[in-house]
Design a binder for these strands. Structure first.
Lengths: 129, 129
DNA sequence: ATGAACCTTCCAGTAAGATGGAAGGTCAAG
DNA sequence: CTTGACCTTCCATCTTACTGGAAGGTTCAT
């Protein structure tokens, strides 16, 4: 199948697939005599894996690592477990950071809703922040 | 005060201050005869405001908007309230997205911890993702 | 007079994941 | 024969908030 069809099947674009190739996520495919990329069917599942990896919050670089392990015939299981554990820790950090920020912003917003603009003095930028 | 001193006082760098000037966050200051930037003391509070705005999760562009309103002599209160409300909505969206993602990743990670590698088949990239 | 510590401008690059466009080749249908 | 839908490469751009470095001017202490 050619790049446009593969893109349609996997819900992405030809542009993105060429980018994925340059990023090492998919191997350079065979070329037809006219120079067109010609993909085999198993690229579909590989790209599905990429999409699932992204849904799991992994970066393309991490997804590429996993794929490369597999390409070398090695089982990526242990590495995947590590990546997922790290991602989980990072998510917990991000979430608690955002919750803290949310509290800060909520307080600022609450105070900004009291329409007591007499307290708004020109010698400061904004009393709410 | 010169740029290095202002940077030290406000906890940033001369490089960043020049960048802030180019981004319209601080006005171009007077220059000494030798061409050095010469800042007045009220730049300190302006930069403190920038830092507080960032702590509230506002972008430099949003902070610049607020400062420009104030620079025009207009009260930014109403605009600030809108910005904070939008930021709060966005934070809620981000947080719930991350919580959802955390659930997904936690499940994947849990299943990846069962060391049943007999299920790891070479014809798929990784059964965990 | 010389070295350190400032300052200046300008240009380039970083992360991440694409996206847009130019200029051109290929192929099938009408 | 031409139109339209594909495909190719390469280069530039987007976002955000800086950061690095080159090449050079200024000031102060020793």
């Amino acid at each position: 199948m050619r790049i446009g069809e593969l893109a349609a099947v996997t819900g992405t674009t030809a542009k993105t697939l060429r980018f994925y190739e340059s990023a090492g996520l998919i191997p350079p495919p065979h070329r037809s005599p006219n120079g067109y990329r010609e993909y085999s069917d198993d690229m579909v599942s590989r790209l599905d894996f990429v999409r699932r990896g992204q849904s799991a919050g992994l970066s393309l670089a991490q997804i590429a690592e996993i794929l490369h392990l597999r390409d070398e015939g090695r089982s990526p299981c242990a590495h995947v477990e590590t990546l997922l554990a790290e991602r989980l820790e990072e998510l917990d950090r991000q979430i608690s950071d955002l919750l803290e920020l949310r509290e800060t912003v909520a307080k600022l917003h609450e105070s900004s809703r009291s329409p007591d603009s007499s307290l708004c003095r020109p010698d400061q930028v904004c009393r709410y922040i």
